[in-house]
Design a binder for these strands. Sequence first.
DNA 1: GTCCTTGCAAATAGTTTGCAAGCCG
DNA 2: CGGCTTGCAAACTATTTGCAAGGAC
Lengths: 136, 136
Amino acid sequence: MAGNYSVQRETIYQVLKSTKTHPSADWVYRRCRDVLPGIGLATVYRNLELLVEQGRAIKINVAQGKDRYDADVTPHFHTVCPICGKVSDCDTDGVIAKALDGECERRGYQGWSLIFTDVCPDCRSIKQIKISRSDQ
Amino acid sequence: MAGNYSVQRETIYQVLKSTKTHPSADWVYRRCRDVLPGIGLATVYRNLELLVEQGRAIKINVAQGKDRYDADVTPHFHTVCPICGKVSDCDTDGVIAKALDGECERRGYQGWSLIFTDVCPDCRSIKQIKISRSDQ
DNA sequence: GTCCTTGCAAATAGTTTGCAAGCCG
DNA sequence: CGGCTTGCAAACTATTTGCAAGGAC
């Protein structure tokens, strides 16, 4: 097959791998521009989508519009702040994770996503809604 | 407090309660128009959001753009088809549900959402991608 | 009368797509 | 070369917001 490599693709993947913040496409785009000033937003979207298809990243759908991406494809739990939308990893209870894997096999499902709702520390202290939607 | 009731609000809630299909705002809108031809889409969005704030409905965020709503607020599992985006209820394993409730209490989280990925029967037979994004 | 709600239209926000040009192998 | 990839701009889709008018209490 021809022309399957590109600096852009590699950069996007490296940027995504370098963070644990579950960034949005836009955030990845901005970080990529530090290295490749000419990169286009569409390229970032296209490649993130490709990474997901290839199983090298996952997409996390939360409210607040933006989709988030994560290069950590090992099954793990997430928390989402209902106020600012920030996504974080949280301790993944092994027993529950095993049980979920079991359910998948038993029922023929392809995977699971477990998200806990948790007002994040920032929003807890600010106590005001919609001040800052996490700009990740 | 003044003027807190409206036929629109009530209709939207009834429409949502009457289905198990986890509809999008647009679908609820179309159903409401059968009864209230003059209702506006913005009204549907506003009230669905209100129902969620009041804890009378939940919002399910999946890929494929549209958010889905559900008037069934009892904790339960969902499946999402990765091809057409259809959301369905699935048997909620009591043991796992209890474990998740436990995790929430232990960690101080406000709730959980468990979504399994499952290619739905329709998409399984069609075997082609992006033919029809479930028009719910 | 006052505050809440509505319908409409316009505005946003996030994401996708068409296309001509460029790079990989 | 031939096919995959890119950047740009325009197109789209879903959702939100401003506002004047109507309804609830």
